[in-house]
């Protein structure tokens, strides 16, 4: 029904969009793997990062990709502060407490943005917004191609951080055995906050990659967060390779289903994958924990 060229293009586009989903899911799954919490503020934090990128571009004339270099540290600091001084103390370490505090934070952030920026949508026009990479007969969106590359690089970087650095080792130790880690002198609240901070920095990268071809309004994050949850569950909560592969998979599935079923039903497809995974294999594709 469609020419092979269109199908290939659609799937490639899905794969590349999936990479950005994966990047968003990466932070979520990392936080889950270590803190064992679902961070409901993740979508709102993505919106914050997108607004930061927008400000950097619209107000200070920065290139959106260059803006990542500034926004990532800012998001890192914000994430650290949030976990260390708000989520951690306010939730008293209880699961339910964390669920509710992060939900409360997401509402606070979303509405604070609404109060500050109103409900307008904002876009940036960069040189690459309309650029395409011509691969033979295929037209691939330049921002997407960049997004794909940067996501892979970020995942590798994250992997290296977790496996080669002291803080990475501490994070993995806390994820595995919190009590043991604290006994050997690792500060668990610090590690928690660092993990949250790294998760937020990933969002900054995702925001920088999204802005050239997307828009931001106070509710933008919500459009991505449910997909990110699905990816985290599908890949296995806490698994980094799971998030990457889950993201790419969801991207491709979404592209295929919207090509053949239409975009609206494609959305239901994502939720069904989500529900079925939760019901049948809550550990996901790569999760080890029961």
């Amino acid at each position: 029904m469609y020419s092979p060229q269109i199908v290939v293009e659609a799937l490639l586009n899905g794969l590349m969009l999936g990479a950005i989903y994966a990047l968003i899911a990466l932070g979520l799954t990392l936080i889950y793997g270590v803190l064992h919490i679902v961070n409901f503020a993740h979508g709102a934090l993505l919106t914050v990062a997108m607004f930061m990128v927008w400000l950097a571009c619209a107000r200070y004339g920065l290139d959106p990709y260059l803006a990542i270099l500034f926004v990532a540290p800012a998001m890192f600091a914000l994430g650290y502060g949030l976990q260390r001084f708000i989520i951690g103390p306010a939730s008293h370490g209880k699961d339910n407490g964390i669920l509710l505090v992060t939900l409360g934070l997401s509402i606070i952030i979303e509405n604070a943005l609404l109060a500050a920026f109103q409900s307008d949508t904002r876009t940036i026009t960069s040189d690459y917004s309309f650029k395409v990479v011509e691969l033979g007969p295929l037209l691939l969106s330049f921002p997407r191609v960049v997004g794909f590359g940067v996501t892979i690089a970020t995942t590798i970087l994250l992997w290296l951080v977790l496996h080669q650095t002291d803080i990475g080792k501490a994070i993995r130790a806390v994820a595995k055995e919190k009590l043991g880690a604290s006994l050997v002198g690792i500060s668990v609240p610090h590690v928690y906050a660092m993990t949250f901070a790294i998760g937020c920095a990933c969002l900054a990268v995702a925001a920088g990659l999204l802005m050239p071809s997307f828009y931001v309004s106070p509710k933008t994050g919500a459009a991505f967060v449910l997909v990110a949850f699905t990816i985290v569950v599908l890949g296995g909560m806490g698994s980094i390779p799971g998030a990457l592969i889950g993201g790419l998979l969801i991207g491709v599935v979404e592209a295929a289903s919207s090509l053949f079923l239409g975009d609206s039903l494609g959305q239901i497809g994502i939720f069904l994958i989500f529900i079925v995974t939760l019901l049948v294999r809550p550990t996901g594709l790569f999760g080890a924990r029961a």
């Binding site: 592209a255 975009d263 609206s264 959305q267």
Partner: peptide, 11 residues
Amino acid sequence: AHPTPARDMTN
């Protein structure tokens, strides 16, 4: 048909 908000219009 597509949902609102749409994340992508490429397809």
